[in-house]
Design a protein around this nucleic acid. Structure first.
Length: 253
DNA sequence: AGCATTGTTTCACA
DNA sequence: TTGTGAAACAATGC
């Protein structure tokens, strides 16, 4: 599930339920999830420390402690579980046990989640929910990438994933195929407004999966506004759905 | 069986 | 050097 809205909910869960608690033990045995750390490295650094604050930029979270910073990323299918029963089949890929007996787990049927010490945020652009008008115009409205690929580029803006990109472009009535450098300021502003609205809605509705376009985002789906059968193609390396009537490539007209 | 998957990194190439 | 696109990564579900 995880795009910016899901990650923000995970961050909020940590902030409201895990801060102030002391770490008694850490399971960092998964060398893929915890790469490049060796098993025991994160445990040694964090045992005895206290969780102090939880932050997010794009899809990357980090937790400040009384010691080193713990970085968490949910990958394609991860989620955070605070004080839940341990998952079967080793699906808790990384976990922290507190001295009070509770537990924070990074749960992921696959293993694309990530837990690291002192995460590197230098490759991330401004958070997609925070970026201002001028920076958005400058960063998104450049280059020759298709617009959707530009939105997905985490170094341009951080937090937009495949579903949120489709939802945002549909709300803004912009084709995913438009060349990002050819949008005018009005279109870029409309795109930013659509992104903020889609993100805000997704957070309040419990995830990007509950967006307005999502029920139709399948083979044979039709535009929820005009009923036109949705187009389907790979754009920016991801499966993309859009309304060929309302989201017209090739220009403002 | 084969294909798709809500993310990121790496590599080849222009 | 910068930008772009495809493949690899791991595992599951349809």
């Amino acid at each position: 599930m995880p795009e910016l809205p899901e990650v923000e909910r995970a961050r909020a869960a940590i902030a409201s339920r895990a801060l102030g608690r002391t770490i008694a033990a850490v399971d960092d045995a998964d060398t893929f999830v915890c790469r490049p750390h060796a098993p025991g490295e994160i445990a040694a650094a964090l045992t005895g420390r206290v969780l102090e604050s939880a932050h997010r930029r794009g899809k990357t979270m980090w937790v400040e402690t009384s010691g080193p910073v713990l970085g968490l990323h949910l990958g394609m299918s991860g989620h955070v579980v605070v004080d839940g029963e341990p998952a079967p089949r080793g699906w808790d890929r990384f976990s922290v046990t507190f001295v009070d007996g509770g537990r924070l787990a990074l749960r992921d049927k696959r293993r694309l989640s990530r837990a690291v010490l002192d995460p590197d945020l230098s490759g991330l652009g401004p958070d997609a929910a925070e970026i201002g008008r001028d920076a958005f115009r400058r960063r998104v409205g450049r280059g020759t990438l298709p617009l959707k690929a530009r939105l997905l580029d985490q170094s341009t803006i951080a937090g937009v994933g495949n579903l949120l990109a489709d939802e945002t472009l549909w709300r803004a009535r912009l084709s995913p195929l438009r060349l990002s450098g050819e949008l005018n300021s009005q279109e870029l502003d409309a795109l930013r407004r659509a992104l903020r609205a889609a993100t805000r809605d997704a957070i309040s509705r419990g995830g990007v999966h509950n967006g307005n376009l999502m029920p139709a985002r399948r083979r044979g789906g039709a535009c929820p506004r005009c009923g036109t059968p949705l187009e389907r193609a790979t754009v920016g390396g991801r499966t993309t759905f859009w309304c060929p009537r309302e989201q017209v490539a090739g220009g403002p007209g």
